[in-house]
């Protein structure tokens, strides 16, 4: 066998293996789609049919009109919450990161170390006191209460600081000489130059909020305020055997995140490197 041929076979073999692995990864999604297109009676028939005999969108219609919940309302709630949380969290992180990266002041390193140290504190430890704090602020069962703890985002400050520190001081000095204030420098110079890092952080916060379950589960009690994940979680106990509905609901909940990811993919790859993942 020639060397060329050997190389070609190796290459084909590589594609076969990686495709098999990719298939294993996406089989659950295909199964989810397949199930969501089935009617109730078709769920429990053997052998398994990947392509349902009678393809129907009934599951989607049913899940949108599910009794006792407002599914469309939940979609809106999830969008609203995720967007506001993202804005609050990214803005507050960027402001702090700017100071940590560029403006020296007494005690800066100590404060930054404290920021980093809090990344170690598990959310499940602060969850109970935070619930009690919100209760006393009368913020339980409100979106404000749900969002407000995310005004502090240690990971966000860290990620943006790393990026901002790498931006050349010359940009700011030029602006400062022209008489710009720090606030102007921040908005007119720093934020535009940090776009990739901001996009990456925004995506992580958006996805994290969109997918979050435990914190909303605790804070929100009013069904009208439920997020998509909460509705899905509640459905799983009440409609446990209606897998076609659960799968249809899950698909609806996944699509926005996948779209956001595809839009931001380019930034993400840069971001992973600038995030400085090191031991």
């Amino acid at each position: 066998m020639t060397l060329d041929k050997k190389k070609k076979i190796k290459k084909i073999l590589f594609y076969v293996i990686i495709s098999i692995i990719a298939l294993l990864v996406i089989v659950p999604f295909l199964w989810m789609i397949s199930t969501s297109l089935k009617g109730r009676e078709a769920l429990r028939t053997l052998p398994i049919r990947w392509i349902p005999k009678d393809i129907t969108l009934d599951a989607y219609k049913e899940v949108i009109n599910i009794p006792n919940f407002s599914f469309t309302r939940a979609v809106f709630n999830s969008f609203y919450l995720s967007i506001v949380t993202t804005f609050v969290s990214v803005m507050s992180s960027a402001m702090a990161a700017f100071i940590f990266a560029k403006i020296p002041f007494k005690g800066r390193n100590v404060l930054f170390s404290i920021f980093l140290a809090t990344m170690m504190i598990p959310g499940s430890v602060t969850m109970i006191p935070n619930y009690i704090i919100l209760k006393h602020l009368h913020l339980l069962n409100t979106f404000t209460g749900l969002i407000i703890p995310f005004i502090f985002n240690a990971f966000g400050v860290f990620l943006l600081r790393q990026h901002m520190a790498s931006i050349d001081d010359a940009y700011f000095e030029a602006a400062a000489i022209d008489g710009a204030s720090l606030v102007q420098i921040f908005f007119k110079v720093m934020l535009p130059l940090s776009k990739p890092a901001l996009a990456v952080l925004a995506f992580f916060v958006f996805a994290g909020t969109w997918n979050s379950y435990l914190w909303p589960l605790i804070v929100l009690t009013d069904r009208a305020k439920y997020t998509l994940q909460l509705v899905l979680g509640t459905m799983s106990t009440r409609f446990g055997n209606y897998e076609h509905l659960l799968m249809a609901g899950s698909i609806i909940s996944i699509i926005p995140i996948i779209l956001a990811y595809i839009i931001i993919q380019h930034f993400l790859e840069e971001g992973l490197n600038l995030g400085g993942i090191e031991g």
């Binding site: 199964w31 969109w210 997918n211 994940q229 799983s236 659960l246 899950s250 909940s253 995140i257 990811y261």
Partner: peptide, 10 residues
């Protein structure tokens, strides 16, 4: 990217 709720349901 999939939420754990959806992942767990699948």
């Amino acid at each position: 990217l999939t939420s754990w709720v959806a992942g767990a349901l699948i």
